[in-house]
Design a binder for these strands. Structure first.
Length: 222
DNA sequence: GTGAAGATCGCC
DNA sequence: GCGATCTTCACG
């Protein structure tokens, strides 16, 4: 008998309650879960190995830093939905909206370890990088605001999986402000993580940076 | 209406 | 290290 494969069929979809929690808590637990994207003709599955949290109106790197705008409307909405935006004139970015409605917070999916659906691509790391994975999984703005309990885009886990993962935290990549907050979580040593931590980062900690704003709550506005 | 920046990526 | 490429938003 062929060895058992990790197919979407073997995954249980994460419930809404998974997303309805503080962002760093969800970030930590998203690592290791599987993202599934399905359209009319294809299905892709990848294991999440790298994410970044963008939290609240006092996080200078978060799009909600300037408050509610047409673009950030989804971030202010209920958890468990996709926030997809366009940047640099050519790339889409996929985020997961988390925490309570009215508390803008999103988690950027930065890298996946391919599980299935990427076989025809030549790129050995077709989902390492937030822009790249959206391009290769045909994720664009038409998915902005869709529920992550839908069948075209969802996140699941294998039942009974309780493996211990070595997750480390670093500052977020590609931002100019808010670099003091260690809100990037990644699977240590995994070759599909998009890139090494920034030089000059604090030594990779095993916990998110408590001094940067509190582990599980929003920082008070000043 | 206009200008500047941007949660990137691949090539020089 | 740099340019591509165009949406979004702040500002006037």
């Amino acid at each position: 008998m062929a060895k058992r494969q990790l197919t979407p069929r073997a995954l249980l979809r994460l419930p809404l309650t998974f997303y309805d929690r503080p962002a760093l808590e969800v970030s930590r637990e998203l690592v290791g879960k599987c993202l599934v994207r399905r359209n009319e003709s294809h299905e892709w599955t990848g294991r999440i190995v790298e994410v970044e949290a963008y939290i609240g109106e006092d996080d200078p790197a978060c799009h909600a830093y300037h408050g509610l705008t047409p673009r950030t409307r989804v971030m202010y909405g209920p958890p468990g939905h996709a926030y997809v935006y366009f940047t640099y004139g050519m790339y889409f970015m996929l985020n997961v909206v988390v925490h309570a409605e009215g508390s803008p917070a999103a988690i950027l999916i930065r890298a996946l370890e391919p599980v299935s659906g990427f076989e025809e691509l030549e790129d050995p790391r077709p989902a390492s990088g937030p822009g790249k994975l959206c391009k290769n999984m045909q994720i664009d703005k038409s998915l902005n605001g869709v529920s992550l309990l839908s069948r075209q885009l969802w996140i699941g886990q294998r039942p009974g999986m309780k493996e211990k993962l070595e997750i480390r935290w670093s500052s977020r990549i590609g931002i100019r402000e808010g670099t003091n907050r260690l809100w990037r979580a990644y699977l240590f040593g995994n070759p599909f993580v998009s890139r090494k931590s920034n030089p000059g980062d604090p030594t990779s900690p095993s916990e998110p940076d408590p001094a940067s704003g509190g582990l599980y709550q929003f920082r008070a506005k000043k």
